[in-house]
Structure formats: C-alpha cells, structure tokens
Simulated assay, not measured.
Amino acid sequence: MAIEVMIADDHSMVREGLKQLLELDGDILITGEASDGVECLKLLEESLPQVLLLDINMPNMNGLEVLERIKEKKIDTKVIILTVHNEVEYLLKAVEIGIDGYMLKDSDSNELKKAILSVIQGESYIQPSLIPILNSKMIERDVEKEKLNLLTKREVDVLKLMAVGSYNKEIGEKLNISERTVKNHISSIFKKIEVSDRTQAAIFAIKNNLINIF
C-alpha cells in the first residue's frame, strides 16, 4: 500500500518535480498539494496524509508557523521540512517545535524517500550533513541556559533593563535600589555570564529571549 504524502511549497515546479520523483516507484502517492501555509492547514484537515513535506518560505503563513499549528491542533501527520535553508537557527527552531524530519532541497530523491520511510516508522530523520552543526549549537544553547540559571531574579531584572539601554541610575530608580547596588549586580552578572561589557550582556539577553527586539 502506497504511503500518502502531501507537498506544501509555493513553487509549482518544485511540487511537480517532487511528485514525479516520489511517485516513480509506486510506493508513494501524492494526495495533495498546497501553495501556502493557510491552504496547507485546510487540506490537512480535509485529507489526512501520512507525511507532509513542508517548505519554510511560503506566503500567508510560513512553514514554521504551520508546524506550530499542526502541533497545537494535534494533527496526526509526520512532518518533514524540505527547504533551501541550511541556517542552523531554522533547524533549531523546527527541532524545538517538534519536527519529524529536516531535509535540504538539494538532497537526492533516494535520501528523501529514506527520510519518508524513517518518519513513517516513528524515527526522526535529520539530513546527516546538518547533524554536527545541530549538535554543537544545542550544546552551546545548553551552556547559555546554565549561565542564565546562575543569575538571581534581581540580576535578571537588572540585565533586562541594562540590555534595553538603561543607565545605572535609571535601573536603580525603576527597581528601587541604590546606584551602588546596581553596580554590584552588574559586576556579578558580567562574571556569571562571562561577558566584559554591556553590549555583550545585551546580546546574551536577546539570545536567551529576556527581551524582544522589533
């Protein structure tokens, strides 16, 4: 029995090419095609494919937003991100949301079929060339979290204000503490997160989602 697969990609030529490659042997059947994120979610609810091949860059709703919605709605479909993006941040985000597979579009069809079979069997499949950088980034992120956990609640408050450009006097006024105490907190923060200036501290705060940048 053929594996039912849906393709979500805003380029019709990509969808057509994938359809021809995947259906060649007869063990995979393309049951639906979507050209944007909204259409993808609509089709998923109408006909539940076993596997969804999902592009990241799509109009109306991008692939990562679609993935989040699939998880929220508990839609029982295995999701493989198929993208041109080899930036590790996209991969990290996809792994955090909960991805079954992550492949680059320059992969050959045999590897893609292997990924589809793997996720059907309950395994995850990350393109092998991406695994070393993913592992190093996840280790780096764990180290950052460990540093963050060293900070007291008051130090986190000071760091947040410092990261948005507040001076020591302003921080003291907002937190109702003396300027000297602020200086002591900043010295402790620098030591714990291993930075030497306010800019590096701000970058740390942004990377750890302590402040939003628009």
Rank of each mutant, 00 (worst) to 15 (best):
V38C: 11
E96H: 09
E46R: 15
G17P: 06
V38A: 13
L48S: 15
I80E: 03
G101Y: 00
K19H: 11
H11G: 00
Y90H: 13
I28E: 13
N62I: 08
D100N: 14
I81N: 10
G17C: 08
I28N: 13
P59Y: 03
I81G: 09
L18K: 07
E33N: 11
I56E: 09
K78C: 09
G26M: 14
S35H: 10
Q50F: 04
E68N: 11
D36Q: 05
V95D: 08
G63Y: 00
M13R: 07
V95M: 00
D10S: 08
L104T: 06
M58R: 09
I56M: 03
N62L: 05
L54T: 08
V88N: 08
L53Q: 08
K78W: 04
L44K: 07
R69S: 10
L44H: 08
K73Q: 15
V66N: 06
L43M: 15
K78M: 06
I75A: 12
L104C: 05
T77C: 14
L21F: 13
D76M: 02
I97T: 05
N60T: 04
D55P: 12
K74R: 14
V79G: 09
K105Y: 10
L21S: 15
L21V: 12
I70V: 15
D27I: 07
A34E: 11
D27N: 15
N86H: 05
L82A: 06
L18S: 14
I80S: 02
Q20F: 05
E23T: 14
L44S: 05
N57M: 07
K42E: 11
M58K: 10
L64M: 08
V51C: 09
N62T: 02
H85W: 01
E68F: 02
L67R: 00
D100W: 02
I81L: 07
L104F: 03
E96W: 02
T31Y: 05
L48A: 13
I97C: 05
D36S: 04
V38M: 12
G63V: 00
I56A: 07
D106A: 04
D55N: 06
V38Y: 08
I30P: 10
N62K: 07
S47Q: 12
I75D: 12
I81W: 02
Q50S: 03
E16M: 02
I28A: 14
L18N: 14
T77M: 13
G26T: 15
M13T: 10
T83Q: 06
E96L: 03
E23W: 04
E16D: 09
K93W: 06
I70L: 14
C40K: 12
D106P: 03
D76R: 00
G17K: 04
I97S: 02
K42C: 04
P49I: 00
H11N: 08
L91N: 03
E23Q: 15
S35M: 05
L67W: 04
L104D: 10
S12M: 09
Y90C: 09
S12Q: 14
I81H: 04
P49K: 11
R15M: 04
C40N: 10
E16C: 01
E89T: 05
K73F: 14
L64G: 06
I99P: 03
E65D: 15
D100M: 01
E72A: 04
V14S: 11
D106M: 04
L18P: 09
N62M: 06
C40H: 12
M61T: 02
